[in-house]
């Protein structure tokens, strides 16, 4: 019988693993530096990839809402600090969006391993789209995993933070589709567009910008289906 290797992964209710890491905003010691704050720690597969770029822009747009809720966002991928810095600068240059939260440079994948962000069935080299919501006592309160191909809904993550904080404050539970107040979250034409897989050679990259797609940069182009 084939031996199944069981990898221990943090679960809801566990204390979040401790670690030290280099980020785009300096070194961090987790959880010490975040004592008293909620943390949304999220991984993305790689810098300079289109779906991740849309997610980072989404998180940046909602950063002030997270801050109002005493939540610190922290990104992570298995990339080095120079790649992170170049990517953040590229996003600012091409879209005008500033990334206002730190991104962990987890080159050796140590933090990703600690949190179970590497799912070999999906990819053994890049992290899946994991989200850990961690409370001010460093306890993991919620975990979400998305595959590489599907971008997350940042408003759902914010809604989940609201639900957890409301449950704590009022000793209640929240039903399906609960929201703290009527929302005006609208989906627009923009939300219907899909990502064109990025080029994987220099030649394709040069051609990409002339192929008629809606491009932010050579690695980040969208199109409408149909």
């Amino acid at each position: 019988m084939e031996e199944v290797k069981v990898v221990s992964m943090p679960r809801i209710g566990d204390l979040a693993p401790s670690f030290e890491a280099q980020t785009t905003m300096g070194p961090i010691k987790f959880p010490d530096d975040f004592k008293g704050q909620w943390v949304v720690l999220f991984s993305h597969p790689a810098d300079f990839t289109p779906v991740c770029t849309t997610e980072f822009m989404g998180f940046a747009k909602l950063n002030s809402e997270f801050q109002k809720r005493n939540v610190q966002l922290i990104g992570l991928s298995i990339d080095n600090i120079f790649s992170h810095i170049a990517w953040v600068m590229n996003i600012k240059e091409k879209t005008g969006v500033e990334i206002p939260f730190p991104i962990i440079a987890d080159v050796d994948g140590k933090v990703a391993q600690l949190f179970g962000m590497l799912h070999p069935g999906e990819s053994s080299t890049v992290t899946v789209r994991a989200v850990f919501i961690i409370d001010p006592n460093a306890k993991i309160r919620a975990i979400i995993y998305y595959p590489l191909s599907a971008g997350r809904n940042m408003k759902e993550i914010l809604r989940l933070v609201d639900a957890l904080q409301t449950a704590d404050k009022y000793q209640v539970a929240t039903p399906a589709d609960w929201v703290p107040e009527p929302q005006t979250w609208e989906f627009t034409e923009e939300n219907t567009k899909v990502i064109v897989p990025p080029p994987t050679s220099y030649e394709e990259a040069v051609k990409r910008l002339k192929e008629g797609y809606e491009c932010v940069d050579w690695y980040f182009c969208k199109k409408k289906l149909g």
């Binding site: 905003m25 961090i28 010691k29 010490d32 530096d33 975040f34 704050q37 610190q72 730190p102």
Partner: peptide, 11 residues
């Protein structure tokens, strides 16, 4: 400045 960054700098 963000609290985590200040804590790191103070340390």
């Amino acid at each position: 400045r963000p609290l985590f960054q200040v804590r790191s700098s103070l340390r």
